[in-house]
């Protein structure tokens, strides 16, 4: 989506990022103190003591239910609920992340497939292009996540339970970037390339598999990066309305019911790490495919395929 203003070396590239991350952590600690201090003060006045300012500030770092937990508290909680718990345990974040991940992956796969098929239909049929494409774009202005509870209840009534309803919401969210990117990608071969295929008297199938599909791959991977991130969001939100008992969304909900802020933050951080990892995997996969196809130099061609 964006390029750094100037080409800089590796070492120079991470320095600004590290600085900003450090700054954010520092701000986080400051806010943790500021936001948690009133609680410490009220505890002190209720106890009738007046502890030194420094000890109160220290205490803000280890409250049970802080307004804003300090970063190290969140990290501690994550370590406690991942490394130190069995994966099968209901309190293990790995267990919850696995459940959310599986439904979002299923939804992502279905969404990508649906997106590719729709894109092919749209590229090859002019009437579909004119009639369906505007609705596909309009479909995303509808806040689909609002419909999530209903989709789940309705599918439940038909007898579909478990992963599939959640995957459906992930699918609905993730098919869109794939359609848009693939329509662009399948239409991206040069006019002269299409003409060349004509002079070879290639059948539509041959033109598709030997020209259009390979040319569209960089676009596909760019869209899939957006789609995989959004499918995780879909799976998490899909867990909210049904009062699901497992999954990262369920952890968020339970945390908000019982005021367990540390639990909310740790679920949030794990979800973010998961999203970052997924995007990275798709990115690496895309680079690998591009390199194998000798398209590495054209990486930037797909940069605008948002």
């Amino acid at each position: 989506m964006s390029k750094t203003p100037a080409k800089v070396g590796r070492a120079a590239a991470w320095l600004p990022v590290a600085t900003v991350v450090f700054g954010i952590l520092l701000l986080w600690y400051v806010f943790a103190v500021v936001l948690n201090l009133p609680w410490e003060k009220s505890v002190a006045t209720r106890a009738g003591t007046s502890p030194a300012m420094m000890s109160m500030v220290e205490n803000t770092m280890r409250q049970e239910r802080p307004v804003l937990p300090a970063p190290h508290q969140v990290v501690e909680e994550i370590i406690n609920t991942t490394v130190k718990k069995k994966i099968t345990s209901k309190r293990s974040l790995v267990f919850h992340a696995g459940i959310t991940l599986s439904s979002s992956m299923l939804g992502f796969a279905m969404g990508t497939l649906l997106g590719i098929l729709l894109a092919i239909a749209i590229v090859y049929n002019r009437a579909l292009n004119k009639s369906l494409m505007p609705w596909i774009i309009a479909s995303q202005t509808i806040p689909i996540l609002a419909i999530a509870p209903m989709i789940i209840v309705v599918l439940n009534a038909v007898g579909i339970q478990g992963l599939l309803p959640k995957a459906f919401i992930s699918m609905y969210l993730s098919f869109f970037p794939v359609v848009v990117g693939m329509v662009k990608g399948l239409n991206s071969p040069d006019r002269s390339h299409v003409d060349l295929m004509h002079t070879y008297s290639a059948s539509p199938f041959q033109t598709f598999f030997k020209l259009r599909l390979p040319t569209s791959l960089p676009y596909l991977f760019t869209s899939m990066k957006v789609a995989v991130a959004i499918s995780l969001v879909g799976a998490i939100v899909a867990e909210l309305p049904t009062g699901a008992v497992a999954g990262l969304g369920a952890r968020l909900l339970a945390g908000s019911y019982y005021g367990q802020t540390i639990q909310i933050w740790s679920a949030l951080v794990v979800a973010s790490v998961l999203a970052a990892l997924l995007v990275m995997i798709v990115d690496l996969l895309g680079r690998w495919v591009n390199r194998r196809m000798g398209l590495a130099r054209n990486d930037n061609a797909a940069a605008g395929a948002h």
Binding site: P16, V21, V226, A229, L252, S256, I264, A267
Partner: peptide, 22 residues
């Protein structure tokens, strides 16, 4: 800019709706 851009790009991919309960 060089520090904020990668982070901004990363954050755009994160499930930010999760901050809702907070």
């Amino acid at each position: 800019q060089r520090g904020l851009l990668p982070i901004g790009n990363l954050v755009s991919a994160l499930p930010i709706v999760g901050v809702a309960p907070i």
